[in-house]
Amino acid sequence: MKQLTFKQFWELSEIYTAPLNLFIILLGYAIAKFQLNSLPSPEFFLFVLIIVMFHITVNVFNHYMDYRNASDENYKQQTNIIGRDHLDLRFVRNFYLFNLIVSFLLGLLLVWRTNWVIGALGVIGFYIGLFYSYGRRPLNSLPIAEALTGTASGFFITVVSYYLAVYQTHVVTLPMIGKVFLISLPLVLMMFNNLLANNTCDLEEDIENHRKTLVYYLGKPLAVKVLLSVYVFSFIWLFVLVIAGLAPWTVLFLLFLFPKNWQSLKKYRALQDKKTTFPIVLKAMSAIMVLYPVLYFIGSLFA
């Protein structure tokens, strides 16, 4: 096999989840706009391209490594897109290597046009993305996977976006980065919940494939309670951010989501199933990941 159909590319690259990264980038710029009335630089748009390319790289690589490392033949032949569609393993490997090289070269260009700070953050991001499913003990087999990946996606992308919007006119300090972390926490928590729910639904499959995620140690009942508690806390945190002056009042419109989403999450609390109830969690968390940056950006326009 020498090419992918669109459907295969869609599933292998999970390109349909890429827009979430764009909203995370939007939050970084919105913070810069709200705090310092900054404008995006050309490097900002280069970063957007890098994120999309690396997003494709990581997802293809994860499918590739999950297939290579799987002990469960049913997973390899029925669940994983590579085995199910009989994709050529060498072609899949070359496909992710091509995307990796392109995103890496674009990353070098970004560092050349900016400074070593972006390089350092980029190295950490590349490491987490690639070693999520690679190595003797890949990150996705460890109990830190949910928190680490949530932080990498929700905070690292946000802080780089913020940095690229302000570095030419302002000196970025640690207190400024600390504020960005506090502001990005709702995104970190929603990404954490998405991964926690995914691993809760996949617990038996993960055990079969020797992956001991956080859910393995918590057990399903406690993992569900953690997810719901994190969800409630994220809404309380919105009040904290607005009261502290770290977010515009417009983000409080997110509160209108809570009653309907809380009601729908009751189905997940009763049954943790990948096909029927996991999409409910994904929809609820993704709504916040999309609307929070949008509402923050709208509020920044009136600051």
Rank of each mutant, 00 (worst) to 15 (best):
T169W: 10
S153Q: 15
L185D: 04
P138T: 09
Y134T: 15
Y134Q: 10
H170S: 09
V180F: 05
F131L: 06
V171G: 03
T169D: 14
Y167W: 13
H170L: 14
M176C: 08
M191F: 08
L174N: 02
A152K: 05
I157H: 02
Y163S: 13
F181P: 09
V171L: 13
N194R: 11
V159C: 11
T149M: 05
E146P: 03
F131P: 04
M191E: 06
I177P: 11
M190E: 12
I157R: 05
G150F: 00
F131A: 01
V159T: 04
M176V: 12
I183G: 06
G178E: 10
G150C: 11
S153V: 13
I128Q: 03
M176Y: 10
N193A: 09
L164V: 09
K179D: 15
N193L: 08
T151E: 00
G154N: 12
L185M: 14
S184Y: 02
P138V: 02
N194H: 12
L130A: 04
V172W: 05
M190F: 12
L164N: 04
A152C: 07
P138Q: 02
A145M: 11
I183S: 02
G178N: 06
L142Q: 02
V171F: 13
T158H: 04
R136Q: 07
S133C: 08
F155E: 11
A152R: 03
T173R: 11
G178I: 12
R136F: 00
L195A: 10
G154L: 03
L195C: 03
V188E: 12
